[in-house]
Design a binder for these strands. Structure first.
Lengths: 350, 350
DNA sequence: CTAGGTTGTGCAAACGATTGCATGATAAAT
DNA sequence: ATTTATCATGCAATCGTTTGCACAACCTAG
C-alpha cells in the first residue's frame, strides 16, 4: 500500500539517499537542486508516501515517544493529567503512549517493560507506589524518567507532586476550626506515597490541635468508590461515630456520599465531608464538596520541563518539586456546636 | 545499555538466529538443544536483554499495536471507553496508543497520520464527526478500522454505537409523560453523528406526541460544560422558558446545573433536566440526574471483536451495530401540572 | 594550466530482529 | 557400507531509514 523511499527513488530515477534528504532533511544542507526536489516531492505525494517510524526509530535510536503510566485512566484526576500532559508534550514535538495499571503493581511492571521495548525516549510515571525496585531499574538504566503525583521519598528521582501533607493539614484544620474533633479518615491504597503522606498530614493536624488520634477512625484500603461506600457504612455504625469524614481521593468521596444517602444521613447537617482531589464535578454534587485542589496544569508543565531537561542533561542533580494545594470551601462542612454533636450521635444510634 | 541478540550470540558462541529462536520462537519448532537454550536464556537474563519492538515490527510488518482516537480523554464517557478497551485489547495480545483530538478535526487528521506512520495494526476511532474524507482514506488503504460511538451513516465502515435516536426518544418521552411540553435541547457539536442523531430523536419524540418543534428551544454548539452553562442562562431568560431541558452530553448537563444554581432555579422543582450519558457521578449530583446510559462494556467488547475479525478477514462485508441505551430515572424530573407550570414561569420572569 | 573550491548526487553500512534454506553431524534402516 | 531421516545450528537476505564519505562535474583564482 504505502510506498517507501526506494519506490520513490526508482520512480524518479534518483537514489534513496536523495529522496530521504528531500523529504526529511531540511534539504538545504545537502544542496539538492530545485528541480530534483520538485520531482521527488511530487512523486511522494502521488504515491502516498508515509514515513515508517519503526525504521526511522531503529536507525536514529530515538523515537520521539514518551511513555506515560497512570494507576487509573478513569479517575478524573488522572484523565485531567493525561489530557494536560498530552498538550504539553505535543508542544515539544513528542507523542506519548499511555498505560493504565489499574492500581496493580504487576501491571505497572509490565507497562514499564512494554514501554522500554518500544524504546520510548522518556517515561513519566504516576506509580501505584508501594514498591520501587522496578522503577529503580529504569533509573539505573539511565532512561529519562520523571515521577508525577506519586513518588518515593527514598528514591533519588526527578519528581513533581502536590504537597500532600499540607493538603491534609488544610482539610483537617478546616474541620477542626469548624468545631469538629471526631474526624475520620478514609484511606486509599496503604503503602502508596499519596496515601501515606495524606495520612501523615491528617495525623499531624490532629496532633497540632491536641486531639488524640483514634485508630478506629482511620479506615479503608483503596482509592475507588466502593471503598468509600463500605467504610462510610462502617463508620456510621460505630457506637461513637465521627462528625466529619476526610477522604483521601475523589472517588472515595463519591462512595461515601452514596452510603450517606442510603442511610438518610444528611451532609453537612448530620455529617461533614471533605475530600482530597477536586475534579470538575465536585461543585455540582449534593452538596457541593469542600475539597483540596491540586494544580494539575502546573504539575504537568513542570513534569514535561523536567523530563526535557533530563533528556538533555542526563547527569544533572535530580529534583523533587512539591506544589501547593488549595482548599476550596463549599457546602459539605457544618459548624459544630457541642449540642448538635450530641443530638447527631443519638440520632445515628437509632 | 540494553543488549541485542548479537551481543548474546557473541557471548554464548552461538549464532544470532539461534538466540532469536530460543528467546522468541516457541523454540521446539527448531529443536534447539536443552543445553543451548539454558545457556542463551541465562545470558539474556544476565545481560538484561530487552527485545527491540522497532526492529521486530519492521521485519514482521506487524506491530501488535492498535491506535485509538477519541475526541476528549477527560470526558468521563471516553475515559471509561478507553479503560474498558484497554483491557479488551490486552486480552488479545495487543497494546494500544491513544490520541486525544480535543474535538478538533485537524488534530484528528494528524492523529491518524501519526498512527499510520507508527504502523499500527488497526485503528479504533471515535471521530469528531463532521467530515470523513480522511477516514475514507484509511479505509481505502485497507487498514483495519472500526468506528466507535461516533460514526457516519453514509460510510461503509464497521462501527458500533448506541442507538442515539432511541436514547433521545426514551429521554424526551419520559419528560412528555411527566407532563412537559416545552422541552429544550442543548446540543453538542453540530454536524457530528452523536449530535445529529440525538437531535433527530428529540424532534421525533416531540413530533410523535404532537408537540410542535420550537427552534428557539434548540440551542448550543459544543459538548463541553461551558456550552451548557451559557445556553441554560440563555434559556432561562426567554420570555417563555422551557419547563425541561434535555442535554446532549454529561458535561453539558454539569454546566446547566451550575447555571441553574447561580440563578436560584431549583431542579426538579423549577426545571426538569435529563441528559445523555451516564457517568459514575450522575447519581451523586444535586439532584441525582435522570440520564441515558450507554452500554460501554458491550460497546468495547464488540469494537474489539469487530476489529479482530477485520484483521483476519479484510474483505468480509462491513457491519454497523446499534446498541440499546437505557433510561435511568432519578430525581431531576418533576411531574408537571398546568398550574405549577404557570407559577414556574412567572417566577422565572422576575 | 593546475590547485582548490563548490554543487549535486550516490554508495554502502548500520540499526536489531526474523526466517527460508542450507549444512554438517549423528542415528537408523536397508 | 550406503542411503535416508532426524537433529541442531548457521548463513544471509530483508524490513525502511539515515548519513559519513566519496566522487564527478564544473567553476575560479593564481
Amino acid at each position: 500500500m504505502s510506498s517507501t523511499l526506494k519506490d520513490i527513488a526508482e520512480k524518479t530515477g534518483v537514489s534513496v539517499s536523495t529522496v530521504s534528504r528531500v523529504l526529511h532533511d531540511n534539504s538545504k544542507k545537502y544542496k539538492i537542486s530545485e528541480e530534483t526536489q520538485e520531482k521527488v516531492k511530487q512523486a511522494a505525494k502521488d504515491m502516498g508516501y508515509r514515513i515508517n517510524t519503526l525504521a526511522r526509530g531503529l536507525r536514529l535510536q530515538k523515537t520521539f515517544e514518551i511513555g506515560l503510566i497512570v494507576p487509573d485512566i478513569a479517575n478524573p484526576f488522572f484523565s485531567a493529567v493525561i489530557k494536560s500532559l498530552a498538550g504539553e508534550l505535543r508542544k515539544g514535538g513528542y507523542n506519548f503512549i499511555v498505560y493504565d495499571t489499574d492500581e496493580d503493581i504487576s501491571l505497572e511492571r509490565s507497562a514499564i517493560k512494554s514501554l522500554l521495548e518500544k524504546r520510548v525516549d522518556g517515561l513519566i510515571i504516576a506509580s501505584v507506589g508501594q514498591e520501587f525496585s522496578h522503577i529503580q531499574k529504569v533509573r539505573d538504566a539511565n532512561i529519562p524518567l520523571v515521577m508525577i503525583d506519586r513518588c518515593f521519598d527514598s528514591l533519588d528521582i526527578d519528581s513533581v507532586s502536590v504537597d500532600n501533607v499540607k493538603g491534609s493539614l488544610f482539610a483537617v484544620n478546616h474541620l477542626i476550626k469548624e468545631g469538629h474533633t471526631r474526624i475520620a479518615f478514609i484511606q486509599g491504597l496503604p503503602g502508596t506515597y499519596a496515601n501515606e503522606t495524606r495520612l501523615q498530614g491528617y495525623k499531624q493536624a490532629l496532633h497540632d490541635a491536641g486531639i488524640a488520634v483514634d485508630e478506629h477512625l482511620i479506615v479503608g484500603d483503596d482509592f475507588r468508590s466502593l471503598n468509600g461506600y463500605l467504610e462510610t457504612k462502617h463508620l456510621l455504625k460505630l457506637s461513637a461515630p465521627p462528625t466529619a469524614i476526610f477522604t483521601a481521593g475523589d472517588l472515595i468521596a463519591l462512595g461515601s456520599l452514596e452510603a450517606c444517602r442510603e442511610n438518610g444521613v444528611r451532609i453537612p447537617h448530620d455529617l461533614s465531608l471533605v475530600t482530597f482531589d477536586d475534579p470538575i464535578f465536585t461543585s455540582y454534587l449534593s452538596p457541593a464538596l469542600t475539597a483540596i485542589e491540586q494544580p494539575i496544569t502546573k504539575m504537568t508543565e513542570m513534569a514535561a520541563a523536567m523530563l526535557y531537561r533530563r533528556m538533555r542533561n542526563p547527569n544533572d542533580e535530580r529534583r523533587k518539586v512539591l506544589l501547593e494545594p488549595k482548599l476550596n470551601v463549599r457546602n459539605s462542612v457544618a459548624r459544630l456546636s457541642t449540642l448538635t454533636n450530641i443530638t447527631h450521635i443519638t440520632k445515628l444510634e437509632k
